[in-house]
Amino acid sequence: MTQPAPLLAIENLAVTFRTEAGNVTPVRGVDLAVFAGRTTALVGESGSGKSVTALAVMGLLPRASGGISGGSVRYRLKSGETSDLAKLPPEGMRRLRGREIAMIFQEPMTSLNPVLSVGEQIAEQVRHHTGTGSAAAMRRAVEMLGLVEIPDAARRAADYPHQMSGGMRQRVMIALAMSCNPRLLIADEPTTALDVTIQAQILALVDRLRREHDMGVLFITHNLGVVAEIADDVTVMYAGEAVEAAEVRTMFRDPRHPYTRALIDCLPARARTGADGRRVVSSIPGSVGAAAAAGGCKFAPRCSHAAPPCHAAHPILEPSDGGHMIRCFRWRDL
């Protein structure tokens, strides 16, 4: 590995929620790294625990019912020191949020406060973290709205969220996230709710901001097309676990985990031409909910390569060449 120390290094993260039906652990073995100036994509189906992982890093899990129950989330601070966010008290975590680590969400329509102007929502964060006066904070807000390519930013700053389109609001969310020069940006499916053309613009915007600000980006998505477009590194999640991690080119050229392979085969670009001449998009049978044998590999019930040992023991995430990590007993055989 030639890379410098990561900005964010998650190791063996586990998150547990208490429910009326008992404890559930939607995340139980996530390892991933985000480097400054690079984008790590966290990929998986819905329900695989991607968003929970993001909220855990942000310290935004619902405090009354859930929390990190294992592993570490090491973050390299501006000062160069490393802090384990999993052990940070809520107050310390709060000081990092918005200032060092910022987040944008999937639902631009509901993620902004409807009764405050968008300018004020950005200025509020600036005032809080930098202690600048309200006039300077509002100037900063307008500057940020300009940065995310909102035309006529000075005037739009006085607008309320309902006066803007979904794409516009997502730009506002990005402006908000960027306003205190964060070093790590967590983007949780920020384009899923948007039109395809707007999606591309938002992706380009996030990518430009990453380059210009040398920011690390943790980009959560279920869309491999988006991954190909934006990611430098990829971690694939399945049923609460990281199952494979690699550089993006390696991942697409040489996927080793059966799940990753299946995912890539599902891409419409990889569709086979069927016997009748039509193109057939493949799919993975079953769903994430498919019950795995206790102690066995989580993916075994849906895996076309599963062998008896796969149902009996649980594989660890093991390193291969060039920083490639795989959680599979059989990757060498495939």
Binding site: L60, R94, G98, M103, S111, L112, N113, E124, Q125, H128
Partner: peptide, 26 residues
């Protein structure tokens, strides 16, 4: 339980401000 309250938390605002300004305001 609204999304914008989560946004306010993500901004690193103190809980009192989230409750009294963002939630109560709505």
């Amino acid at each position: 339980s609204e999304d914008f309250v989560r946004t306010a938390r993500a901004k690193g605002l103190p809980e009192s401000r989230i409750v009294l300004r963002h939630a109560l305001g709505n």
